[in-house]
Amino acid sequence: MRSMHDAKLLADSISKSYSRPGEKNFLKVLDDIRFHIRESEFVSILGPSGCGKSTLLNILAGFETADCGDVACCGEPVKGPSPERAVVFQSPVLFPWLDVKDNILYGLKLKKEDRKESEDLASVYIKAVALDGFEEYFPSQLSGGMQQRAALARALVLRPKVLLMDEPFASLDAQTRYSMQQLLLSLHGKYRHTMVFITHDVEEALLMSDRICIMSKRPGRIVEEIDVPFERPRSLSLTSTQEFSILKTKIIASLMG
C-alpha cells in the first residue's frame, strides 16, 4: 500500500456533472476518480473519447472545479491554475503576437526572475526541444510539430512540480508524433518531471509511462491501474517486442470492458 503522503499529485474522490443543454437532469462525466502520482512518475490516463479525460485534466489544472472531491499538489489543495501545474494542451495555444523566445519567456517574466538567468534557462529549453535557430519565428511561421515543441518548452521552462498534458500529440502526423514521443521520453529521462499524460492511444501510453490508469466510458471511473514494467531508457523498438503486445492486448480488453 502506497503512502498518501508521498503523493506529488493527489485526486481524492473527484466527481463532476455538467448540465445538459435544454434538459433538467445532469450528465455525470466523472465518478469518484481517485489516484495519486509520485515524484518523477510518468502516469498516463487512457480512456475512450468522451469519457471525461479532458474534464479531469482541467480539474487537475485548476481551470474547473470538481462538484465534490479534492485535488492536492504536494500536500496543498488546488484552488486555481498555477505554473506549478503547467499544461500542454492538445493544440499548441501559443501567443501569436509573441515570437518563440518571448512565448517561452512569458511565464518566467511573470515570476520576476533575474532577466539574464531567465534568458539562459529559456535557451536551454529551446535547445532541448530542438528549436534553436527559430527563436525569432512567430508561431504562424512554424509547423504544427514545432509549435507543439515550443508549447512544451514554455511549460518545462517553469520547472513545474507536475506537467499536465492533454493528448499533446493527437493532432500531429505519425512521423512527427514518433519524434515528439522520443523527445518527451528523453526529456523525462533527463529532467525527471512528474507527468500526467492523457491519451487514447494504447501504444503511446505503454511506450511512455510508468503506470497507466484506464478509464471507463462515461461516467469516467478508473477501472484499472497497470504498472508498465519496461526498462528505461526506452525507444520505439520496444513496441515490436512480445511483452509489449501482450500488455497491449490486456489493456485493450480492459478498455472494451
Partner: peptide, 26 residues
C-alpha cells in the same frame, strides 16, 4: 479564445496581467 486565457493563467498571469498581456494583444 478561452484557451489563450487558460494558457495565460496557467503560466502565472494574475487577472490584471492577463488583461495587459493576453486580452489586449489578442
Amino acid at each position: 479564445s478561452p484557451l489563450l486565457i487558460r494558457a495565460g493563467r496557467m503560466l502565472g498571469a494574475s487577472r490584471l496581467t492577463l488583461f495587459t498581456t493576453v486580452i489586449i494583444p489578442a
